[in-house]
Amino acid sequence: MKLSGLPRRAGVGFKPEHFLAINAAAQPIGFFEVHAENYMGAGGPPHAQLGKLREDYALSIHGVGLSIGSVQPLDKEHLSRLKIVCDRYEPESFSEHLAWSTHDSVFLNDLLPLPYTSHTLTAVADHIDQVQETLKRQMLLENPATYLLFAESTIEETEFLADVVRRTGCGLLLDVNNVFVGSTNHHMDPGDYLALFPIESVREIHLSGHSETVDDAGAPLLIDSHDTPVKDPVWALFEALIARTGPVATLIEWDNDVPDWPVLCAEAQAADDILLNASNRRAA
């Protein structure tokens, strides 16, 4: 099984509108990440662009449609499509979400939450075994941003993720914005969550922006909207985390209201500075 191995630098989620700007000069970017589903067509500009990016940069392929958290079986056709994409581009890393998005073959196109029980733990672990066996590579599982909880849950999310890692040998993608969003939404301390997170298994970090609203009782409800710069409390959590872990491959995710390339690139530079400081401190 090929292990996940991105450079311990800052990366950026690739958007086709940035291709010309990226291609115009060498960029100070450690890796690019793409959504696997956008590269499942037969040909055309998506493959031409990704083929070119792949020549110059490390690559992370991030799935958004496998529905690993479903209690129903994985879509084998979709899994074979993922294998074709991974075999073609040989990414340094493949990741997916602790969430479900398909039910009875209807694709709901959102990352939906699941209760954490021994039953769902077995289902998720079986699905990850199947993914890793098919792709012949270690996958990373990403912690979700959630807006509500299930009464039937019996396991903490951090413990659930640690159990999945133990059972499957997968790695983790720690989305720090998701931690902040989920902790705020569930009235918990994100620092406590991160203290319990199995950080020794983290191979990649995601940073992104969120938006704010309120729930029925008027309590703050944060939405994982990926449409703004990374917010200050998320930067603070990231910096404290990196002080514990040392440098980890870190992605800036900006999927909606995407800014011009220089703005996105500067956001990655800010993350890279924190990673570089951490390695300098370790070397000192």
């Binding site: 209760p115 807006y147 509500l148 939404n185 029925d216 409800l221």
Partner: peptide, 16 residues
């Protein structure tokens, strides 16, 4: 079977 710390019926949370 859905829950939130504010205890109320999570209409707006589900609406997200």
């Amino acid at each position: 079977g859905l829950a939130s710390w504010t205890g109320s019926q999570p209409e707006r949370r589900f609406a997200v």
